[in-house]
Design a protein around this nucleic acid. Structure first.
Lengths: 196, 196
DNA sequence: ATATATATTAAAGTAACTTAAGTATTACTA
DNA sequence: TAGTAATACTTAAGTTACTTTAATATATAT
């Protein structure tokens, strides 16, 4: 009869144990600081239980790690990702041209930077309705005149201007000129970095 | 007698409820997809319980949010950072011109993207000096011809090419043309380290 | 008013968590 | 070479609390 184990996917138990051992701390020591029982830490590290989030937060605090670390995929390969100018993947969505500057590998979006070259026709706009996506965006205007509205503020953007902001604040980029608005646009980290 | 509530610090319950309502999903719908009871979701959203991490992961998945979002501090100011074309901070270092595309605010290491406009004179090169710099970089060639050497591989770069890679792999960008090599360059700062 | 849908509450269940005892390893002493 | 003690970790049983089932409330609509 097989033993019960949880979360083979992330295996955060082993990660916790590894970190604890690197720090040369004992179960007792960690348990004491986290104000939980020594036994519980042992069980968590061996994936015997699915701890309460409060418990996990306390352990992460004691071990000085981000929760994110425990749930990130380690299949990540340090791939070098070259996209030639003529081979950009192009997407047209609602009157806006997106050219991908980093390849999207099929089964994942593991790029720490998602980058696009954008073309927005006159009077068209690019909006966002992302909730809870922690991250930051940065745009660089290459050509044309734009209007950027974010969190009640309005900015006029011209060639060479660059703007960066938190992704989860609703924002709109609108072409206010006569010509096509061209820009580079970057998002980091990509959406859905972990937790799926 | 005051009601029992957990996690006043992060208040992820309210966040979950807010996101669910924005997505116009019902408790039942979320519960069904996450394979937990409707009742439990209700209790979690009102901070009545400290859910198991597995439960929380399922909810995050259904709502398409990062766990991290639920536990980030909201004291962070979501600063909007506009740099006008003519007002870029310029740095010249070893024959290379760097123009900052995002302002560096003193106490703030929170910029997820550090961006530069680069100009490299013929035969000059830009190397990576910093070791253990975790994170990712992305470059876009605007003009000129370059040679990019990373981890034993060599790439020829031309106008419009973009390349991204892990920062901690030693790399060199060299101008191999007759004209000035122009590029945009982006760096994501490292996350909180662990164990070292 | 009846029905339907959404959210909360109460109870019973099950699993996380604690306490306490157990094993194993290491170290010290005779 | 034991023999004892101390340390680190695991296991077992009891307690707490998360989770579910089912009932109740509340609003909206037919």
């Amino acid at each position: 009869m097989p033993e019960k184990t949880n979360n083979t996917k992330y295996n955060y138990g082993e990660k916790i144990r590894t970190i604890r051992e690197k720090k040369q701390m004992t179960l007792k020591e960690v348990a004491l600081k986290a104000e939980v029982s020594e036994s519980l830490v042992s069980q968590i590290e061996r994936n015997k239980v699915s701890p309460a989030i409060d418990t996990l937060l306390r352990l992460a605090d004691v071990l000085e790690i981000d929760l994110e670390y425990l749930f990130q995929d380690y299949k990540k390969k340090k791939k070098i990702n070259l996209v030639k100018a003529g081979e950009r993947n192009k997407i047209i969505n609602q009157g806006i041209l997106y050219e991908q500057l980093s390849k999207t590998i099929d089964d994942d979006k593991e790029h720490a930077i998602e980058a696009y070259y954008l073309e927005i026709a006159p009077d068209m706009e690019k909006g966002s309705k992302e909730y809870g996506h922690r991250g930051r965006e940065l745009g660089i205007i290459i050509e044309g005149k734009g209007e950027f509205i974010i969190g009640g503020e309005k900015f006029d953007l011209e060639k060479g201007d660059s703007i960066s902001f938190e992704s989860d604040v609703p924002h709109i980029l609108r072409n206010k000129g006569q010509k096509t608005l061209k820009a580079y646009w970057m998002v980091t980290p990509p959406k859905k970095a972990f937790g799926n």
